[in-house]
């Protein structure tokens, strides 16, 4: 993917999108829905960061998925179709199926989160609360400012201790822990005392006046309007199907899927469009603005 136009959409759209997709992935245990979500999540994650995603999938997701598939039938003995007995406990087909479904669900949730972490930066997240919770959003923004500064200061303090001949990364475990405490203590004093300057700087610039506004660097343009409309339509369609019970599935006591109908086919399409929305959007933009692939 050459450009990532999706990431440039308004944060409200991004947040709505990820919330919807992640919640849907968590709750829809229907195999078709699981497959769609996993497939799209994996594809998008790979297109965003191929190497990291493959490493993450192999090292983290795959073992977890295997573990969940195995553990579920071991501790869940509900279900009618007994496959075999282990230690006089039945291993059932239903539990195995449910285990596999859970594994797929969990994997896709993790994949979607990995995409979200790349797109939904702290800055975008903070801007969401700008209007509704200005103090909270300012608090977050200040913490984001302080954390890198404190990390740098921690390094400076550690080095200052080192410069006095009191190295911190040497010595026994208790010594190292004690040195760490010393650093943390110096950092705390420094941070609290200098915080007063920050507070003064805030008040000098009028913090505390009534009627504080919030500057939105992200503009909600007409493209955003269109995209949000399409997105909402897809989400409502899927939700409607959910209320109709189209994507529900019963695993216990025996597997039972809702009957297949044109409506369910329509829902699958909608869910697929929803899950592949970012990739489709990027593809369209690629053709439209960047002169094809």
């Amino acid at each position: 993917m050459k450009t990532n136009d999706f990431a440039k959409l308004h944060p409200v759209i991004l947040f709505t999108y990820f919330t919807a997709v992640i919640l849907f992935s968590m709750f829809f245990m229907h195999p078709v829905f699981l497959a769609i979500s996993f497939f799209c999540g994996f594809l998008w994650a790979v297109s965003l960061a191929p190497r990291e995603t493959l490493r993450f999938t192999l090292k983290c997701i795959l073992p977890l998925a295997v573990l969940m598939t195995v553990i579920n039938p071991m501790i869940n003995h509900a279900g009618l179709t007994v496959l075999l007995y282990v230690n006089d406990r039945p291993i059932t087909l239903e539990a195995c199926a449910y285990g596999a479904a859970s594994a797929a669900m969990f994997s896709s949730v993790l994949l979607w989160f990995s995409c979200s972490n790349r797109i939904m930066t702290a800055e975008k997240f903070i801007s969401l609360f700008g209007r509704a919770a200005p103090s909270f959003s300012l608090l977050l923004s200040m913490v984001m400012r302080f954390v890198p500064r404190f990390k740098a200061q921690t390094r400076a303090i550690a080095e200052a201790q080192d410069g006095l001949g009191r190295g911190v990364d040497s010595g026994s475990l208790p010594t190292r822990a004690k040195n760490g405490m010393k650093i943390l203590s110096i950092l705390t004093t420094w941070a609290l005392e200098n915080g007063v300057i920050t507070a003064d700087s805030m008040r000098a610039r009028g913090y505390g006046l009534p009627g504080r506004g919030r500057f939105q660097i992200y503009r909600f343009d007409s493209r955003d309007k269109w995209m949000l409309t399409i997105l909402s339509a897809l989400i409502f369609a899927v939700l409607f199907g959910f209320i109709k019970g189209e994507n529900s599935i019963r695993y216990f006591p025996f597997l039972s899927l809702p009957p297949f109908s044109p409506f369910s086919f329509f829902l699958y399409i909608c869910y697929f469009l929803l899950c592949s929305y970012p990739m489709l959007f990027n593809a369209v933009c690629e053709v439209k603005y960047h002169g094809g692939f």
Partner: peptide, 25 residues
């Protein structure tokens, strides 16, 4: 008020960045 907000931000940041003080553990 500004001072409370800064103090809360400082405490949160110490909680997050304090990990760096124990990079060896």
């Amino acid at each position: 008020p500004a001072r409370d907000l800064v103090t809360l931000a400082v405490l949160c940041s110490i909680a997050v960045a304090g990990r760096a003080a124990f990079f060896m553990l």
